[in-house]
């Protein structure tokens, strides 16, 4: 899976490709994004292009979060569309992830 990243200071922003992350591509995303996550990394997933995420996509995010937290890093999510936000709230994952409005908000929250 082609993942676009952007480095702002020491923060790595991963832009989610495609408009959906579901059981058809979540495994691939989980595998490929894992290679981009460095120990103690400050990472932002930009979900602005995603209009649909299912439980597999959610699982991939959780896996990334745990990988980063284990090495002292952190993951923030930004640019959530309404249906994606609804899923996070449905399974209470908005309490597990730090969710920021925009990409800039997310980057700023790391330098605070």
């Amino acid at each position: 899976m082609e993942l676009t990243t952007e480095k702002v200071g020491d923060v790595v922003v991963v832009i989610l490709p495609g408009e959906h992350l579901d059981a058809s591509n979540a495994k691939e995303f989980k595998r490929d994004v894992a290679l981009l996550l460095e120990p103690r990394g400050k990472v932002v997933f930009d979900l602005a292009g995603l209009s649909f995420v299912d439980s597999s996509g959610l699982g991939a995010f959780l896996s990334s979060l745990r990988q980063l937290n284990a090495t002292g890093g952190d993951l923030k999510l930004c640019g959530m569309t309404k249906p994606v936000r609804a899923l996070f709230e449905l399974v209470r994952m908005h309490k597990i992830f730090e969710i920021c409005g925009t990409k800039d908000d997310a980057i700023r929250s790391f330098t605070r």
Binding site: S55, G59, L65
Partner: peptide
């Protein structure tokens, strides 16, 4: 719901 599991939400 505590973020410890990747699956089982379906």
């Amino acid at each position: 719901f505590d973020g410890t599991q990747d699956g089982g939400f379906g």
